[in-house]
Design a protein around this nucleic acid. Sequence first.
DNA 1: CGCATCGGATAACACGTTTTAATCTGTGCC
DNA 2: GGCACAGATTAAAACGTGTTATCCGATGCG
Lengths: 336, 336
Amino acid sequence: MGGVSIKEVARAARVSPGTVSNVLNRPERVAPATRDRVTRVIRELGFVRHGSASTLRAGHSRTIGLSLMDIGNPFFTDVAAGAEDVASELGYAVILGNSGGSRAKEEHNLRVFAEHRVRGVLITPSDGDPRRLDGLREHGISVVLVDHPAHRPDLCSVTVDDVAGGLLAAGHLLDRGARRICHVTGPLTIRQCRDRREGARRALAAAGLDPESALETVEAPAMTARAGQEAAERLVASGRLPEAIFCANDMLALGVLRGLHQAGVGVPGDVALIGYDDIDFAVASAVSLSSIRQPTYKLGRIATELLLDECGNPGEHAHRQIMFQPELVARESTGR
Amino acid sequence: MGGVSIKEVARAARVSPGTVSNVLNRPERVAPATRDRVTRVIRELGFVRHGSASTLRAGHSRTIGLSLMDIGNPFFTDVAAGAEDVASELGYAVILGNSGGSRAKEEHNLRVFAEHRVRGVLITPSDGDPRRLDGLREHGISVVLVDHPAHRPDLCSVTVDDVAGGLLAAGHLLDRGARRICHVTGPLTIRQCRDRREGARRALAAAGLDPESALETVEAPAMTARAGQEAAERLVASGRLPEAIFCANDMLALGVLRGLHQAGVGVPGDVALIGYDDIDFAVASAVSLSSIRQPTYKLGRIATELLLDECGNPGEHAHRQIMFQPELVARESTGR
DNA sequence: CGCATCGGATAACACGTTTTAATCTGTGCC
DNA sequence: GGCACAGATTAAAACGTGTTATCCGATGCG
């Protein structure tokens, strides 16, 4: 039931198993006549190569592991789409692991990847400690960090400049004339949040304002729409509305938008609003959302290309830490 | 570099390789003393089982394939989250394939799954022809259809009643007093779209209206926000606005909402609006969107449970075609 | 005509694990 | 003390492929 093996193909084609293997892996080494005969038999018998046997003997698989922080966030699914496309184009399969930000689940994912002897791993680590990854690398598994900078020269990473993004966002609000700006951020334990906030502070400083007093920071417990709405409700209840709000995330921003709307606060009339990530739903919102665009899909593509290059040319591969620049997308929520 | 093998563990623990294997797979068969000794050595040496070798010898892997139609659609990522959770809980790994609706890519995914000798496959087929799946099943690979009914008794499937959903949606609009209803659907080649439309027709018929004349149908070329916005613009331009709009999809509905808003048409004041899927962004919209909720995450969970049951008990497994009932979620877009 | 050469095919082993049948080691019983 | 018995362990044979060294036959050349 399991399927026809290379031996049966060999017998049917009056050839040795080794030759069939050569047809599959180094076609140039076998004479055209026999090559055609073998490929025809392969098709007729419906033979499909046993990947595990191949991996076992060859010592390496054609598989990569992808550990996502949150499969429900369009940012990460865009990254995944890019990664899957490249992997598929180059003949690799993707094993998916959804960590949900849990360190234990992340650990579990890495173990599963190791058991499957994946060729490499794409991961957005939930904490800043990349030492665990060394365990993988000792097993000969390459690692590329996604949306997290590698502070070491022997590791590839692909990121987007979050400080620059924060600067762009706050700068845009300042350009629009806002002076009292509120920053709704996610947990400051998350590096991305810290960096974006730092960027906003620099923008204010550059405009001659004091970041400490001019930038009121509200830290939401999660980067979800619900958390954003609650933050907006608290802001409204406090009675001291800012002129503009910068959210660390489009999910937060959509929640804030809804909270303001329900309280009768007009956007952008009463308050300007800008998010971050430029997810597809940002433009679909009733008041389209200004945001900071990141090359998300590309992030996944490049990361996978780096990973597979590292796997393919272990000797001459040069580790790179790539950082993209984000881009401002001004829409209705910050006024025409 | 590849890692330490079961033999080295055996040598270090003064035991035969077979015993190490038993410790891993049937711990009850080995004496507690040696069991402890072996597990300690395993930990000390950092041994991790070679999954491919295990698969090769055992004849079956601990892996399932997941072929998604659109990894960018929250509906499918919710399903994926449910599937990944169950698979992970039961010790299975998930190989991800994103078909994007392309039949060729879907074919490619299935081939990759077959090569990896996955235990089973979860798939939302892009067309109605499940014959290709028989190829997999001949290889001993189980298949469960997700969001697509199996019209055969020898195949499991997990779906949601789209006719009932369409009936709920249109019924709700009728309850709100609407009589002239417009249905913005996706391509009618998609089964889900046909069924939801059929449900809407039945609701109108039950209310004593003629479905042909009372239900104006606009077929959008894709189920995206952009397509929805364009549909709304055409509707506004035609000058004959309906009293209510039922969209086959929340993506379409968000686009329609935006198109109406930009044209100065109030929702729900001038036109009531309802979508389908109840994605998270439906509630985050500035005017929260009424929708039809499907147990999306559960869909993925149940499908995976069925699949792994079929793999685990090939003899006594009873194929089931499960159909869930959708649920109306009334929000602001259809008036309080 | 004999010999070296070379492309093309093969035989055989190895990869790391699982599993079956066989072996070993005490223990209880007559 | 011998025998049967159960439990614990082992030896060895697979699983399907990739690769290396080898072999074969034909061709070219002296």
